[in-house]
């Protein structure tokens, strides 16, 4: 049975060794940073491509964000996603409640035009804001079951089976389609875009819809770095000669006892 899959992604700065906040304390300083998406979302895209290869159907990637989010959508298209939808903001950050409302409304419109999605995939949480709620809010708005934290997925004709970690154990959920799944990295090993994939991505359909997400009673005032962790680094030496000192330290730390 053909499966229509939608994957929601979010453009986020590719932060590295440290985060720098802008002088006004309002946002992460991205002047020297590239942009990316969550590893969870890369796995969601990979899963969508594989599912459509197996079941037939079509895959769509959707994001809500500034015009520059086209970069993340084109990346998704280069991996083999068929079409893209950009819910374009003027750059202001949208909270999780407003984001979910806009996404649910957009999915409703896409389904009215092109038919229902069997599966909506989200990353488990955004790496930057870490709200842990957009997928569930969309699922509730659309009246569909939702499983979060999913690291293994098997999709059948009218249902799916999803596994997630719970401590060291695994939990299995069986839900009917259509369904919403929030996935975690480890679901699969995402491919890198191929050169032909990148070329094809340029001509795949990308629809832009302007949106103005509502404000919320939960409002960001500013960002700041947490108090620094007090670790003072003791250099133990250079190269293989440091081994003696390392083993002395291991002994001092009491980790040599067996």
């Amino acid at each position: 049975m053909a499966l229509r899959v939608l994957v929601a992604v979010k453009r986020v700065p590719a932060v590295g060794g440290k985060i720098v906040v802008t002088d006004d304390g309002r946002e992460v300083d991205t002047r020297f940073l590239g942009f990316t998406m969550s590893p969870h979302e890369e796995c969601a895209l990979e899963e969508a491509v594989r599912l459509v290869q197996t079941h037939g159907g079509e895959s769509t990637v959707l994001t809500l964000g500034p015009p520059e989010s086209e970069e993340q959508l084109r990346y998704a298209l280069s991996l083999g996603i068929d079409r893209a939808v950009l819910l374009e903001t003027s750059g202001q950050e949208a909270g999780p409640r407003a984001t979910a409302a806009e996404i649910a409304a957009a999915i409703g419109a896409l389904e009215a035009a092109n038919g229902p999605f069997g599966l909506l995939l989200f990353g488990n949480e955004a790496p930057d804001t870490g709200d842990f709620q957009v997928g569930i809010r969309v699922a509730e708005a659309l009246g569909r079951p939702c499983v979060t934290g999913v690291k293994h997925l098997e999709v059948g004709d009218d249902h799916l089976v999803a596994w997630r970690d719970h401590g060291a154990a695994q939990e299995l959920y069986r839900v009917g389609l259509p369904a919403v799944i929030a996935v975690k990295e480890g679901l699969n090993l995402p491919r890198y875009p191929s050169l032909p994939g990148r070329l094809k991505a340029k001509s795949k359909p990308l629809d832009r819809h302007p949106v103005s997400p509502a404000g919320d009673a939960l409002r960001t005032v500013g960002l700041r770095l947490p108090p620094a962790e007090a670790r003072r680094t003791v250099p133990l030496g250079t190269g293989a000669e440091a081994a003696t000192r390392v083993v002395e330290v291991l002994d001092e730390l009491g980790v040599l006892a067996r």
Partner: peptide, 24 residues
Amino acid sequence: KADYSVVGDLHAVVPAIVEELRRV
């Protein structure tokens, strides 16, 4: 960010630590 640091190539440092551990 570490409490202890060794500047060097792990391909030389780690075998040296292994050897030293065995010796000790």
